[in-house]
Each structure stands twice: as structure tokens, then as C-alpha cells.
């Protein structure tokens, strides 16, 4: 999933302060799963903002709505009437959702309430970890299923570096060294000879280096 984290209240408050009424728009998919922008978070944030503005003696009307997914136009349509009734939309979706909403409502300011952090997993309750950078050409087969592009601090394709110690990364002793994990996994299924292979430099064109990416599926087009 896309993992995100709600922005600090103070920052959100400053962002929406110029408006007398606005819509907080939640997203029921990824950000809901990571407790950053689902229905529950919309309600909590709305209440917190009402209290914060109320304390300053400012009257603010806050509307609340959560749609299934903000990255699909279909679902955003449901927000149209509420959005147009308000001076601004505070979106609690990931950056993609925020921009999708903005593209649908060209005359209304759409503001981000969430910091989109990474593509990751729920490792254990309350712990989300990054697992993929969306490089556009998955090479997990070469690295025993552990991604060094997103999980090695230096993106080494021929690691580990000299800083790997006791299985931890030199950059942060709390972080596992991706290369230790790669080696451990290859050892576990007896394919350590693969570690001798020289992995050539990556072609970054499929990743973010190639400019904004597009994926076309003609069979699905209407």
C-alpha cells in the first residue's frame, strides 16, 4: 500500500486558516489502512480543527466526506456537490489522490493533509516499513526477494558496503541491512552462488529518472 502520515495539526490549521468553510475529504483505500486519511481520521481531524479554530473565536464550517478511492474519477464524482459548496478541499489522500481531486475541481484550492511517505507494508501493528520504490523494472528475482533499491541506503546492486554490522545498516542501527537479508535468504534456500554474480548498473529510465511515467493499456481504453 501507499503509506502516509497525517501532517501536524498546526501545519494543517495554517493551510486551511484562510477559508471560512472547507471540505475534509478522506480516502478509503491505502491511507485508511495506515490510519492517515480514512473516515475515522477525517472525523477526528474535523473535530480537532473545530476546537482549534473555536478556541481562537473563529467560526469555521467543516464538511466531512470519505470516498472509496481518490485516485479514481468515478469515486470523486460523489464529492462534487460538497466540494463545490466549499471554498477549499483538504484531501487526506496520498499525493496522487490529492492531484486527482485537484484536476477534477479546477476552480477550488485542493490542499494536502497527509505526507505521502512510501510504498510499504504493515510489518506489525503500528509499524509500517518501506519495501518498494516503484522502479518500473522489478529485479526481486536477482536479489532473493529483498529489494536493495528501496531497502539498501545506498541502493547497492553489488553490496553489502563496508558499514554492515551485526545485520544492521550503517546509516541507522534500527534498520536491517538489506544485503544481510539478501544473503540470509539465499543461504536459506541454498542459492549462495548467485552472490558471485556481477549485477550490472540499473537502467533508471523506467524509474523516476525518465520523467513522469505513463502506463497504457489499450485493451482497457474506452
Amino acid at each position: 500500500m501507499i503509506v502516509g502520515e497525517q501532517k501536524p495539526l498546526e501545519e494543517i490549521k495554517a493551510m486551511v486558516a484562510p477559508y471560512d468553510n472547507f471540505l475534509i475529504l478522506g480516502c478509503g483505500t491505502c491511507v485508511k489502512t495506515c490510519f492517515a486519511g480514512g473516515e475515522e481520521e477525517v472525523a477526528t481531524l474535523a473535530s480537532a480543527l473545530r476546537l482549534a479554530f473555536g478556541k481562537d473565536g473563529k467560526k469555521t464550517k467543516i464538511s466531512e466526506l470519505t470516498v472509496e478511492r481518490q485516485c479514481e474519477g468515478e469515486f470523486i464524482r460523489q464529492a462534487a456537490s460538497l466540494a463545490t459548496q466549499n471554498q477549499a478541499v483538504l484531501s487526506l489522500a496520498c499525493g496522487a489522490g490529492v492531484q486527482m481531486v485537484a484536476s477534477r475541481f479546477p476552480k477550488i484550492p485542493v490542499l494536502p493533509g497527509v505526507n505521502t511517505t512510501f510504498i510499504g507494508i504493515l510489518e506489525q501493528p503500528g509499524l509500517f516499513t518501506e519495501k518498494c520504490l516503484g522502479c518500473g523494472n522489478c529485479v526481486l528475482d536477482v536479489f532473493s526477494g529483498i529489494c536493495p533499491i528501496s531497502r539498501c541506503s545506498k541502493k547497492l546492486l553489488n553490496g553489502p558496503c563496508g558499514g554492515s554490522k551485526n545485520g544492521k545498516c550503517e546509516v541507522n542501527p534500527e534498520t536491517d541491512c538489506a544485503w544481510q537479508l539478501i544473503i540470509d535468504r539465499y543461504q536459506a534456500f541454498g542459492e549462495t552462488e548467485k552472490l558471485y554474480n556481477y549485477v550490472p548498473p540499473k537502467d533508471w529510465r523506467t524509474a523516476d529518472a525518465g520523467g513522469p511515467r505513463k502506463l497504457v493499456r489499450e485493451d482497457l481504453m474506452v
Binding site: N158, P160, C161, G162, G163, S164, K165, N166, G167, C177, Q180, I183, L195, Y196, Y198
Partner: peptide, 20 residues
């Protein structure tokens, strides 16, 4: 770095560097 971990792998990496 002969002192980094994983120790057994340091020599494999040395071999890779020589080949490179």
C-alpha cells in the same frame, strides 16, 4: 573492509571486485 559483516561474504565481495 575485512571487519564488516557478514564475514564469510567479505571474501566473495573481494572476488567480485577483482573480477570487476
Amino acid at each position: 573492509n575485512p571487519f564488516a559483516d557478514p564475514f564469510e561474504y567479505r571474501v566473495i565481495r573481494l572476488a567480485k571486485k577483482i573480477a570487476a
